[in-house]
């Protein structure tokens, strides 16, 4: 059985180590916070916060306290606030150990596309281009194929890029792949997923 959203998030959480400062994207990556367990992880929100806490209790929402997805959140005892220039200085400066992001397409060279589909409404890249260019490690979490069954793990991205050669690891419903010299390397298969199934669903070159 391929992994579901929560299992993918749980697998992504295994990538995080004690003491890391981490930025989580919107969607499945947000769920990763539920699986960090006892690890000492500090979440960054690029609108200007380190130490992002959970959603507030009803009635305790604060309009001055939101995350990068514009959702109301809370602070923790470790929290610090700063302005947007400082926030992206720490991102560009490599101080954030990892970003876990969703994607529309990833390719065998580590190129990532997750902000724009030509011909559809373009909302903007937000902080995604800065994150993938700046953080220590970029981990993509996404479904292996789109709703038509086509592979999202490609030889070459077809959509406008968010970053070139930026992805380190891809976690999908079928398993885990690393971007290595010459292509992608299978690191792990989801329970019950065969290597053949992984290869068939992957357009990118798989190397040993």
């Amino acid at each position: 059985m391929p992994w579901d959203r929560n299992q993918m998030a749980a697998r992504a959480a295994e990538e995080l180590e004690d003491g890391m400062y981490v930025n989580l994207g919107i969607g499945i990556p947000t769920l990763v916070a539920n699986y960090v367990g006892d690890k000492d992880i500090t979440l960054q929100s690029e609108n200007g916060m380190l130490g992002m806490g959970p959603f507030p209790f009803e009635g305790e929402e604060d309009p001055d306290l939101i995350n990068a997805g514009k959702q109301t959140i809370t602070e923790l005892s470790r929290t610090s606030y700063f302005d947007s220039a400082t926030s992206f200085a720490m991102i560009r400066g490599g101080k954030i150990a990892a970003a876990i992001l969703g994607a529309m397409e990833v390719d065998e060279k580590g190129d990532l596309a997750n902000w724009m589909i030509p011909g559809k409404l373009v909302k903007g890249m937000g902080g995604a281009m800065d994150l993938v260019a700046g953080v220590g490690r970029v981990i993509v979490v996404m479904d292996h194929t789109n709703k038509h069954g086509d592979s999202k793990v490609l030889t070459e991205c077809t959509l406008p890029l968010t970053g070139k050669g930026v992805v380190d690891r891809i976690i999908t419903n079928l398993g885990v792949l690393d971007v290595v010299e010459g292509g992608l390397k299978i690191v792990e298969l989801a329970d019950g997923v065969s290597e053949d199934e992984m290869r068939v669903a992957t357009q990118a070159k798989i190397v040993d």
Binding site: P54, F55, F57, E61, G69, Q71
Partner: peptide, 8 residues
Amino acid sequence: IEQRTTRK
């Protein structure tokens, strides 16, 4: 508030 998100 743009996105009011809460927990019980």
